[in-house]
Write a protein that binds this DNA or RNA. Structure first.
Lengths: 322, 322
DNA sequence: CCACGGCCGGAAATATTTTTCAGAGGTGAT
DNA sequence: ATCACCTCTGAAAAATATTTCCGGCCGTGG
């Protein structure tokens, strides 16, 4: 963490011997960029006409001026380079170069300042850039909500059950089905026996095979998807440890769940179907499950992860090709 | 110079003699300052050792580097001025001068909006609550990075292509396969003809059927998954509009892509495989694609979405039961 | 009317950035 | 193992940008 403010001069280049003359090192008044506009006003009366023109231009459009070289700014204001440099000095910078840097900073701050629209709903005529910002913002919000609402005790219990399981069956349909597969893929990678069912009938026949110590996980946003509830019920009846990942902790699915992990429900709209944020939420939960299991079984999980990575590298196109 | 990809090999099949196809180049993608750190991570793998050192220094201490001249930064990183300039170019700036300006802006932003959330890596002995917090934070970061680095021009072009497509094929393997399926599911819901292939052979045979106006999308984090590149190449050669969603904009896959959408690459560790954050990033990108298409085809998409929602309600357990 | 003093811009001097170029080091093929 | 080739790298030249210097201009006061 070396955030130490360096002096402006870097002193590179000029040999050690000569050092003909060096500007005064003391940063007279290294002004915070934000204060620049005020400083211009304060100092304006003490400026000559030409310098005022320069200062005015700088205060009016920091971003624009930051893109200009001394020559450019001199031309723009109808003055000379020398005047521009003098103005920069008067404003407290060692030279124009440093003024320009400060200007860039100011511009960036102003830029970041105005983006209050991201909380609004996505409209049909939003420009594409705004859609990106809003979607990202919403998903971030969903993540924060989910993390805050997640019951770590339930999560810990679920991790424990998974770690000890002889075998794990996962049920999910539609969008939740992809989450189920993702979890299964991950668990397989660390050497656990996991399987995500997408066929409800086969899921039930698989559930019949489960017994005490095994784990069944149902993933359903609505909490009432019968195709998912049914296999979980069967697993429950056969003595398996059952886990429900759902947005409705009061839904039917929790009836057959030993542990319930709640996903958060963000607002939705026509342009933002529920599937979008529920998926984000569900994925965070399964990532937590996965990471928890990996921690507990680190001795075996780490080599397994490394091995699966290794195996995949060979499926890639050789590097040279381009 | 501009690293423009050379003209591509014409398809062996039906040499149509058309003008060589060119990927939409968003050439000097002047990146928003905030995206810089993410961009460094994304591009790091394609950098040479010396350039990596420079990029690392820049990402680690933007404020400090902004105070350095090209010579100073070269000395600091133990490289040469030429390398520094090359790095600046790779990061999307015309030269070091502009990188420095962006750095100053970034520093100013960091200064104002202080980010005290220490993002330590996940440790084996972290309590479960901390795992949840760190995972959520990391994914939020990934979303922010992705959104900041996403090229809206490419995105817009991709949306346009999708909107007009007679049919859309999507290729993805492993974790990316799930993302592919998610996109396909979504597009189907708004009435588009989309299909996510998981069998590479079938994907190729499907790609042969594509023609001008159709769209093929390849999703691969590494950018060099041959099982995914191959069908995209075939689609490309048959005249389909091709889109690559990848974390390596310099990877082989982009050779055959008309539009490239870059996903961000978060740092990874043993407890946090790359698959985790790349998936988050990919999902945001496809959500943006989907939302963009929905906007453009609102007249037909909205009723379709409502209808699919309706249809699913009947798959649920009756409310009374519990 | 002339001398004075500060402001101003042109141009030289200096610093910085960019480009060029050739050697170093590595890679893959034979 | 050797060789050809290709990329990376830094030194130095070339191009730009910045700073300094200097002398002219203009208003003011003697």
């Amino acid at each position: 963490m070396n955030e130490v403010k360096e002096s402006f001069r870097e002193g590179g280049g000029d040999g050690d011997g000569a050092a003909p003359r060096r500007r005064t090192e003391t940063a007279a008044a290294a002004p915070a960029p934000a204060a620049l506009t005020a400083k211009v006003r304060t100092l304006a009366p003490s400026m000559t006409r030409s310098m005022q023109r320069v200062a005015e231009a700088v205060a009016a459009d920091p971003a624009g001026c930051a893109a200009l070289t001394v020559t450019g700014l001199a031309e723009l204001t109808g003055t000379s380079e020398a005047t521009v440099v003098r103005t920069a000095r008067l404003l407290g910078y060692p030279g124009y170069r440093d003024l320009r840097l400060a200007l860039a900073g100011l511009a960036a701050q102003q830029q970041s300042g105005r983006s209050p629209a991201v909380t609004a709903d996505i409209a049909v005529d939003d420009p594409i850039a705004e859609v990106v910002a809003k979607l990202a913002h919403d998903e971030q919000q969903t993540l924060a909500d989910t993390a805050a609402a997640l019951d770590t005790v339930q999560l810990g219990a679920a991790v424990t059950a998974l770690t000890a399981a002889r075998r794990t069956d996962i049920y999910g349909i539609g969008a939740s089905g992809l989450v189920a597969q993702d979890l299964a893929q991950k668990l397989l990678r660390i050497g656990l026996v996991a399987h995500a069912h997408h066929d409800p009938h086969l899921a039930v026949t698989g559930a019949v095979q489960l017994r005490a110590g095994d784990v069944a996980i149902a993933i359903t946003h609505s909490g009432s998807t019968s195709d998912v509830i049914e296999p979980l019920r069967v697993a429950f009846d056969h003595g398996a440890t059952t886990i429900a990942i759902t947005g409705r902790p009061d839904g039917p699915v929790t009836q057959y769940a030993d542990h319930v992990l709640t996903t958060s429900t963000a607002r939705e709209s026509e342009l933002r179907p529920a599937a979008m944020s529920s998926r984000t939420s569900q994925l965070l939960v399964i990532d937590c499950l996965f990471t928890g299991v990996t921690q507990r079984t680190y001795e075996t999980a780490a080599p397994a992860l490394a091995a699966s990575y290794e195996a995949l590298v060979h499926r890639r196109v050789p590097r040279g090709l381009r």
